[in-house]
């Protein structure tokens, strides 16, 4: 019963994501308007037949911008997350494998420093150093974001290392590298992916928060986070400006959450039982 629910959530998540990605990546075909075309006569229009989600302060169609902006947001956040996951998994796995070694201790200290680091200050300094652009912003994010994946991988690998399967492999004389890639990392992959699906929403919002502080993507190319931050100036008279990006962010986060929950339900045998 429960595993059926799990695959149900998984299926729903994948379908929703496919739908969203489809709408975003066929944007130029779905909505052939120019996302940059300004129109002084049509500023801040309410949603209607002509502009389904209304227009922004420059008279640009919000639906078109949301769809086109999704490409930037999804690709860049996806890439940033992927790099954070890769860095985190690699370093975390090594630390877990050589638990208690110098490398492990140094890595944990670095993680401590990064956790202790005021992220906003860091992002601002990066922006001031290299200029505000989405790329620099994401760079700042990755520098801090890999930490949570490293911590998780490290603890999972450490657990798995002491399992009988690994002991057996070691007795058979398998090299550390092989053990790491054959036995340990695959076990860590599941939980890390689950964590990653949850983190994507946070990532999109972190970009919105940084755009709010003036460190976002560069005009005029649309991006969900900076669209939200720009729309803030009109939140009383024209809140529909927020609607487009907010809706797509919510749906994206929902899709990833469903995928994450579905994945976890599949992996986690305990959750099958419940009391009522």
């Amino acid at each position: 019963m429960n595993s059926r629910r799990a695959s149900c959530a998984l299926g729903f998540g994948v379908a929703l994501l496919a739908l969203l990605a489809g709408s975003v990546f066929t944007a130029s075909w779905l909505s052939p308007d120019d996302p940059l075309a300004m129109n002084v006569g049509a500023r801040l229009q309410q949603p209607g037949m002509e502009h389904w989600l209304g227009t922004d302060r420059f008279g640009r169609d919000i639906l078109t911008r949301t769809l086109h902006g999704g490409q930037t947001t999804l690709i860049s956040c996806g890439l940033a997350l992927l790099s954070a996951v890769l860095i985190g998994m690699l370093l975390g796995a090594l630390a877990g494998m050589f638990h208690g070694s110098v490398f492990d201790i140094v890595l944990m200290r670095i993680i401590d420093v990064l956790l202790a680091f005021p992220f906003m200050v860091f992002a601002m300094v990066i922006a001031a150093l290299f200029g505000t652009s989405l790329f620099h912003l994401l760079f700042a994010v990755v520098v801090v974001w890999w930490v949570s994946f490293a911590r998780l991988t490290r603890s999972l690998v450490f657990q798995a290392k002491n399992s009988t399967a690994v002991d057996a492999a070691r007795v058979l004389g398998t090299s550390n590298t092989v053990i790491l890639f054959r036995e340990l990392l695959p076990q860590a992959l599941g939980p890390v992916l689950v964590l990653a699906t949850f983190e994507l929403g946070n990532l999109i919002l972190a970009i919105a928060a940084l755009s709010f502080l003036g460190l976002g993507s560069q005009p005029p190319s649309p991006e969900w986070g900076s669209m939200l931050a720009d729309g803030r100036a009109h939140f009383m008279t024209a809140p529909h400006v927020l609607l487009g990006p907010a809706l797509w962010i919510i749906l994206t986060v929902l899709a990833f959450n469903c995928i994450g929950e579905g994945l976890r339900d599949r992996m986690d045998p305990y959750e099958k039982a419940r009391i009522g």
Binding site: R57, A128, G131, P219
Partner: peptide, 28 residues
């Protein structure tokens, strides 16, 4: 001045000029 830059960019595009806006701290 972000909106100003954005509008100027659009106006110059009408003339066939590729304008790029870089908005950031004054120190840049």
């Amino acid at each position: 001045d972000r909106a100003l830059g954005e509008t100027l960019q659009y106006q110059w595009a009408r003339l066939g000029i590729q304008a790029e806006v870089q908005h950031g701290d004054y120190s840049l």
